[in-house]
Design a binder for these strands. Sequence first.
DNA 1: CGGTATCCCCGGCGATACTG
DNA 2: CAGTATCGCCGGGGATACCG
Lengths: 120, 120
Amino acid sequence: MGDRVGDMEDYCMVEAAMEVVGGKWKLAILRHLFDGTCRFGELNRAMPAITPRMLTRQLRELEADGLVRRVVYPEVPPKVEYSLTYLGESLRPIALRLEEWGHWYRERRGLGGEPVTPRS
Amino acid sequence: MGDRVGDMEDYCMVEAAMEVVGGKWKLAILRHLFDGTCRFGELNRAMPAITPRMLTRQLRELEADGLVRRVVYPEVPPKVEYSLTYLGESLRPIALRLEEWGHWYRERRGLGGEPVTPRS
DNA sequence: CGGTATCCCCGGCGATACTG
DNA sequence: CAGTATCGCCGGGGATACCG
């Protein structure tokens, strides 16, 4: 061992990051949480294209990966607040730069794709 | 501009970026091309886990998205060189920061996952 | 309000064999 | 050397209905 171990360590890290952040809605969710704590419904209203099911799933994964904190208020009607952990916050600069890049990229490429999948 | 009109434009851009760069091997490939032009076989040897088929597919997508340049030398035996376009180069700082982040993340989280799916 | 349950589709991804 | 061809899995993601 040791001959070419360094190779995979390197690119593996970027893939490790992608596993955490590569879900279809993950970065979109984080992006909203950058602006502050959100309730479930707020997030869902802010991203109408995502179904509650998927929003839940992605939030739970983000929580399991330690990027998002979920706080349940035991009251009625139910209230749940999502916020970023320190780990989640640490992604802010990168996400923002990626966002910039995406913007710049689409300008250069002439807005190739649809912004949001249109529903029938 | 209005308070939050830009919302979906914004996060859409990060998703746009993910569409281009979100493939399982995309960033890994780019990461290798950051170090300079590569031939097909070099890339494949550098990433033994990826099959030729997938390597081809992801390279073609990167090419279609304008991140990678493919140069064919009409000689025998065949020789094809892959390099980054200006667009591809522009991802370097972001990819590097994501890599840093991935490294840091895994240290904090105690190396949760396997680096590469081990073949038996 | 903040989710689950259920069902299903599609395409990303993989393995193996073959070719100009 | 640099790919195709073929086949198939599997799970991420979606639609809709329902629940505490």
